[in-house]
């Protein structure tokens, strides 16, 4: 510790992390990013067949979520926040809202296209009439 006056006191709290946490977070994030990139490269090289589309969506989502947690822990130090963990609580609330907005929009819009467009509705009726 430096004892010079006028400098802010170095805090002893653990929740600021050290150079080591930043380096490990950086290396992990790099690895996850490059992993996702290589997966997509391979998927394209194999003409969208070899790792299947479903596999790709799941794998890429998992890689992104892992990266999210990695950065929250190693860069934002949310893992050892001091006791009333309000930062984490608010983050949780924001995540809930975002999930509702995104999943809800997708759900609604998908069903809008599926059931409600006039063209599809008339197509549907046409097929029913033809069937009978």
């Amino acid at each position: 510790m430096n004892g010079k006056p006028g400098k802010p006191p170095a805090t002893q709290e653990a929740n600021y992390g050290s150079a080591l946490t930043y380096v490990s977070g950086f290396v992990l994030s790099l690895a996850l990013t490059i992993c996702a990139y290589l997966l997509v490269k391979r998927h394209i090289a194999n003409h969208h067949v070899s790792p299947t589309d479903t596999f790709m969506v799941i794998a890429l989502s998992l890689l992104a979520l892992t990266q999210l947690v990695t950065q929250l822990v190693f860069f934002l130090h949310l893992d050892n926040e001091s006791k009333p963990r309000w930062n984490l609580v608010v983050l949780g609330f924001a995540v809930i809202i975002v999930v509702i907005i995104v999943a809800g929009s997708l759900w609604i819009m998908y069903h809008l296209n599926y059931n409600m467009t006039p063209q599809q509705q008339s197509n549907y009726l046409l097929h029913q009439d033809g069937g009978v």
């Binding site: 430096n2 950086f26 990013t33």
Partner: peptide, 25 residues
């Protein structure tokens, strides 16, 4: 896009080291 991503990721890292240095004065 990979280049963009790696650049931003590295900047996030150097920013983290920067704030660490700021706390140490």
């Amino acid at each position: 896009v990979l280049a963009e991503t790696l650049i931003l990721l590295t900047s996030s890292f150097t920013c983290g080291l920067g704030i660490l240095a700021a706390r140490r004065g």
